[in-house]
């Protein structure tokens, strides 16, 4: 049987494994990015605020998360936290809920640090003259941010957030090591059943690529729409 025939056979027989994996990968990536953006925004605000201790905490967190492997962070959350008495509860109607939670928490804590940097650099890329003009005309700091700075910063931030989503889709493959049935986990399952690792991995690679390619196309479209009418 040739390589492509093998792929065809594996897909027809085992597609539910891949589908289940895609579903979970997308759930984890979407949840992680949403939480990452929410907490990343808070982290960015802390990072830029004038209260020194908050600023330092945020800086330390961001540096630490960006300076350590995601694998280590995931292990730390999954194995480490229960040892100090923090456990994610099990929910009877969602299988493997506690594993899922650990995966999502680790991914979003990681993403949060990157998002915070994306937001901070997006805001700092706005010309300082914009803030000065807004303040000099009588706007308060918060209003200047809301009316002038953030609308401009968003246009720097959104494309970078899109890239972050693409990154998270790829990186999320790591949660399979703690037994979350994501695409990588499903792929490993099919390999164990068929002993055909190469075709299985080829299928997984194609699916990951399609997911990231579609995501980045969607983001590019969104970007284009936002640029409409002005430079």
């Amino acid at each position: 049987m040739g390589f492509f025939e093998q792929i065809a056979v594996i897909i027809t027989r085992y597609y539910p494994y891949f589908l289940e994996g895609v579903k979970n990968t997308l759930i984890i990536a979407a949840m992680s990015v949403v939480l990452g953006v929410v907490f990343g925004t808070l982290m960015a605000i802390m990072r830029m605020c004038r209260i020194k201790p908050l600023k330092w905490i945020a800086m330390a967190y961001i540096e630490f998360v960006r300076g350590t492997p995601l694998m280590v962070q995931l292990m730390f959350i999954f194995y480490g936290l229960p040892m100090v008495g923090i456990e994610f509860p099990d929910v009877s109607w969602i299988p493997n809920f506690s594993r899922f939670m650990a995966g999502i928490v680790a991914m979003s804590m990681n993403s949060c640090a990157y998002v915070a940097e994306v937001i901070r650099s997006g805001i700092q890329a706005v010309d300082e003259g914009q803030m000065e003009a807004a303040r000099s005309i009588g706007f308060k700091y918060g209003e200047s941010m809301k009316l002038v700075i953030l609308p401009q910063a968003i246009r720097n931030i959104l494309p970078a957030l899109g890239n972050e989503f693409v990154t998270v889709i790829k990186e999320s493959s790591i949660v399979s090591v703690i037994g979350i049935s994501d695409l990588m986990y499903g792929t490993n399952g099919v390999i164990a059943l068929t002993y055909r690792s190469l075709p299985c991995l080829a299928i997984a690679a194609c699916i990951y690529f399609v997911l990231t390619f579609i995501s980045s196309r969607l983001i590019a479209m969104l970007e284009k729409r936002m640029k409409h009418g002005r430079k």
């Binding site: 003259g129 914009q130 005309i137 706007f139 308060k140 002038v148 609308p151």
Partner: peptide, 20 residues
């Protein structure tokens, strides 16, 4: 200061119109 600045107009070398 926010109230006082309303009465003091400022024009900058680089215009600083709100780009958005």
């Amino acid at each position: 200061i926010n109230v006082q600045r309303q009465k003091i107009g400022m024009v900058f070398q680089h215009f600083n119109l709100f780009n958005n």
